[in-house]
Design a protein around this nucleic acid. Structure first.
Lengths: 342, 342
DNA sequence: CTGAAAGCGCTAACAA
DNA sequence: TTGTTAGCGCTTTCAG
């Protein structure tokens, strides 16, 4: 009654079950003639290998899990897409898992899946470093947009990108910027702030940070108010979602963008091009990051316990100039914290 | 070396393997005392059931697959989110599969996964009815945003929603509308057109259709041009992505919205509130649709081959009025096809 | 290159 | 309620 098995195929083809297994499992190691016989029989019977039976003995499941910190963040779309395509190309199934910005949930999901997948892609993980080290020691893991020494990773480069943001703002005459920080456990948030601060110092700009903020449109209101309070003329938000929220709040308060302040985001999500004004943002080929991450993971699945260097891929980011940044037109030289009248 | 198995647990707890199996599988049917002993032993050993071994004998995998026609369409985000949450609540894993708007790929993916999942959620499937019937006969299937007689489904109601769109436009003085159609195999596209046409007839409005168009921003250019050619004063686009593309093209051609024409979309995606002008669109609780679909699927997994009525859930849609619709201000009574001067 | 046979870890009758 | 015992469908030595 059930589905045909290798036994059925073996019988019809007149070979042993192990031969059938080999035809579907190993590339060479079989005569063309017998392979054809087996394949013909399989087709005839409508045979499909049972992945669970296969996994049970081989411990390979042909699936990988991608854990994202928040599935509703558009930033992940391209990432997911790239990973999905690469996985499919290698005949792997991609399981998407949502951590909903919760450290605990992220960990729970990983544990739940350890036996069902061959490896993990952890995107924007909020785990502490040592927890990640532990996970990486137990399973094949590739970090996305996060770096931890000794763990494979694929990231969109933030440092040079932030330098470009600062250079762009400086060239427009801005002398002060405020970074509206992302979640406290976000590696990207930390990296961006460090890079912005250093670049600002080099450029002779002052830089302060407010936050942290949940990277959502909703949080933009509070973020905008705090940013205004810093007196800076350029706001760099942790991501586009937050930046869009900031733009809204500024509009509500009749602060003109880029007339009064300039606003920059990160990620270059679809909506960055639609909001008013359209958003200057640091983007990049996110789908390539996803693709690269899968590639690294597949590589490590190929030869486990490889003691070579851990691959850490960095893909270039790209500053997309739009309408939310413009020349500084406010009072001259107002220091960010000083309430100097003008 | 390997992970602990029920044998290890059974030995440590001093019971039979089947007892261990029952503790993890069945709810009651076991003495509290022995259950405790088993659980303690399991914890001690760090035992985790092997899902593949379990699937091999029980034919239940605790995972369901959701196939979406295009993973990059923001419309699906909430749908996915709702489905994912409901699945997790039932200790099911949700596998996300991308069909990339390809009928063939959709089918391929389903075949590939038949053995690995307990059932399928097919969102906005592009398959012909009879193919779906065949799939549904072979596996538990729930359709999302598509209805086929005899197959379980969860949809966001289009009919009354379209009537509301027409009523809204009529109340603004519009007497003609053009529907910018979605993909030819889209059930939603067909339903929307039928509903719009009928509602328009009732309201004394003329309605024509152009297309089909791929529901993306990029297609909006051609769609807008075609729509302008129809002479209608109200454009109803198949979805928000297309509508946003239309808005852009209209802006490029200096057609004012809503001054010259009104534009309506479907889905109420995030970006609908950000574009300029913001988009009037027919939305709804998409996450509830996803949730409902999972619920139906789980239900059917509970008692397979249930010969009761096939559940067909319809969730209410909701017209969200924004800035892209306004009073008709063009020449009076210009029939859509008639070149009458004014 | 191919076959025989022993499991992989678990569930599900069937007994007790 | 608990134990015994076959397999589930496949991979993988080990022989031939």
């Amino acid at each position: 009654m059930g589905n045909p098995t290798i036994y059925d195929v073996a019988r019809v083809a007149g070979v042993a079950t192990s031969t059938v297994s080999r035809v579907f499992g190993k590339p060479g190691r079989i005569t063309d003639a017998t392979r054809d016989r087996v394949l013909r029989a399989a087709r005839e019977l409508g045979y499909e290998p049972n992945p669970h039976a296969r996994a049970l003995t081989s411990n390979r499941t042909q699936t990988i899990a991608m854990v994202v910190s928040d599935i509703t963040n558009p930033h992940f779309f391209e990432l997911i897409r790239g990973a999905e395509m690469r996985a499919k190309a290698a005949a792997y199934t991609l399981v998407l898992v949502n951590a909903e910005e919760s450290t605990r949930m992220e960990l729970e999901q990983v544990r739940r899946l350890t036996r069902s997948v061959d490896g993990f892609l952890l995107a924007a993980s909020r785990q502490p470093d040592d927890e990640l080290a532990e996970l990486a020691a137990a399973h094949p893991v590739v970090l996305i947009n996060r770096r931890v020494p000794g763990i494979a990773s694929a990231v969109l480069e933030p440092w040079e990108g932030c330098r470009q943001i600062v250079a762009h703002l400086a060239s427009l005459g801005h002398t002060s910027l405020t970074y509206l920080a992302g979640p406290p456990n976000s590696w990207m948030a930390a990296s961006r702030w460090t890079a912005l601060r250093d670049a600002a110092a080099e450029a002779g700009m002052s830089a302060v940070r407010t936050g942290p903020y949940t990277p959502t449109v909703k949080s933009g209101g509070a973020a905008a108010d705090a940013a205004i309070g810093t007196g800076a003329t350029a706001f760099v938000a942790h991501n586009d979602l937050l930046a869009i929220g900031v733009l809204r709040r500024l509009a509500d308060r009749s602060v003109r963008v880029p007339g009064d302040v300039s606003v920059v985001g990160f990620d270059d999500i679809f909506a960055a091009d639609l909001c008013t004004p359209s958003l200057t943002t640091l983007g990049g080929a996110h789908s390539d990051v996803g693709r690269a991450a899968v590639e690294i993971l597949l590589e490590s699945l190929g030869h486990p316990r490889d003691h070579g260097a851990t691959p850490e891929i960095v893909l270039p980011s790209q500053l997309v100039l739009r309408a939310s940044t413009g020349p500084r037109t406010g009072p001259d030289d107002r220091p960010p914290a000083g309430p100097r009248q003008n």
